[in-house]
Simulated scan of single mutants.
Amino acid sequence: MMDFSLIAMQLFSGIALGAILVMAALGLSIIFGMLGVVNFSHGAMFMVGAYAGLWVASLTGSFWWGLLVAPIAIGVFGMAVEFLLIRPLYGRSVDDPLLLTFGLGYVLVEAVRIIFGSDGIPFPTPTHLRGVVNLGIGYFPIYRLFVIGVVGAILLTLWLLLEKTKFGLIVRAGARDPQIMRVLGVDIGKVWLLVFGLGVGLTALGGVLAAPMRTVNPEMGSLVLAEAFVVTVIGGMGSLAGSVVAGLVVGIAVSMTSLIAPEMAQIVMFALMALILLIRPQGLFGKSGAHA
């Protein structure tokens, strides 16, 4: 019989993993939900965010500068991608931006490989976030608790932005009927630009947060892209609440499975996705027949 403290600590590990999955899926969900664009360069943006955070931290000697600067810089890069590459494809087949971002992902991976090499680079955990803390049921890494706290703060801020501000109202209305928003005099192109930048910035932030727990390498985005799509599909395409719930569920499922049957840990998320699709094809929080 398993010890209760072991199960409890594994559950906490699942929540920490789920927090990273939530960050990975949020950007994908926001961009699809608001713009209807399936961003296949999502995993590459996550990877570029990790490298940008590592580079800034190495230049400044501070993890905090990397955590702050990298998401903003990659978010601005995402805005440039939307304006220069994706915007001309609006109104055309949904396959066009999908194929474009698919190719962009490969370009980013190869560019990073040329600049930084193919070998993985460790991202050291900040000194004051190293070690473990006693939670009463066992010892848990301080950095993972930090990640859970940061993701919680980001989710609260994002909810307030989208639900309690004029910008959030415009974003939600624009997702439902952009034509009406244009008639009302709203520059919907500017809104989409900001939304795409926000989605990419959140993805890059997830990359920086995950970097100390994973080796930073050019291929790290491939698994993240698969994980993000699994979480997004389970939660419901375009549903932010669905991304949060599904990310935590998948993280806990993977963590608990690795305790019971480690060889099945990487399969359980795909099995869970298949089960959800059979029972509820639109996902847990998705709307049937709608993309948002």
Rank of each mutant, 00 (worst) to 15 (best):
K164M: 12
L272E: 10
W55D: 00
L202K: 12
A8N: 05
A241Q: 03
R214P: 00
L259K: 13
G78I: 08
A52M: 04
M269L: 06
S118W: 10
S118Y: 13
L26S: 02
P88N: 11
V107Q: 05
L84V: 14
V81F: 00
G289T: 13
G247L: 02
F83S: 10
Y106W: 14
L240S: 12
M1P: 11
G120C: 05
E263T: 13
V244R: 00
G206P: 08
S13A: 15
T125V: 15
L161T: 14
I31Q: 03
M213C: 11
F285H: 02
L284M: 09
L6R: 03
L104V: 11
I20Y: 03
V112R: 04
G221F: 03
M213Q: 15
N134K: 07
G33A: 08
I279Q: 10
G43L: 07
E163D: 14
Q282W: 15
G174S: 12
A173Y: 02
L272T: 10
Q282N: 14
V250S: 02
G91V: 11
I188L: 06
T157Q: 06
V208Q: 01
L11Q: 01
A111S: 13
F285Q: 03
G33W: 06
I31D: 00
P71T: 08
Y51E: 04
V200N: 03
G36P: 05
L98I: 14
A210K: 00
G91K: 11
L21I: 02
A50N: 06
A70Q: 02
P97Y: 05
Q10M: 09
H291M: 13
F167R: 09
L158C: 11
G197N: 15
S62W: 01
V216N: 01
L155R: 08
K190T: 11
A292P: 00
S288I: 10
F146T: 08
L161F: 15
G247H: 01
A246E: 01
R214C: 01
G251R: 04
L162Y: 08
S288E: 11
V151D: 05
L26V: 01
I148M: 15
A153W: 03
L11Y: 01
E163R: 12
S288W: 05
G49I: 04
L85V: 13
F229Y: 08
L11G: 13
A19I: 07
V38K: 00
M181S: 14
R92L: 15
A70H: 02
I114H: 07
V76H: 03
K287H: 14
I279C: 12
L240E: 12
G168T: 07
V231A: 04
I86S: 05
L160V: 14
V233D: 05
A290T: 10
V22P: 01
L205M: 13
G221W: 09
G49K: 00
L89H: 04
G235L: 10
L169V: 09
G197C: 15
A8F: 14
G138Q: 05
F77H: 04
I31Y: 02
S222V: 10
L194N: 01
V183I: 15
A211T: 08
V171P: 09
F270N: 09
G117Q: 07
P88T: 10
I188W: 09
A44D: 11
F123Q: 06
I72Y: 14
I180H: 08
E163I: 03
I115H: 06
I154Y: 00
L67T: 10
R280A: 08
M1D: 11
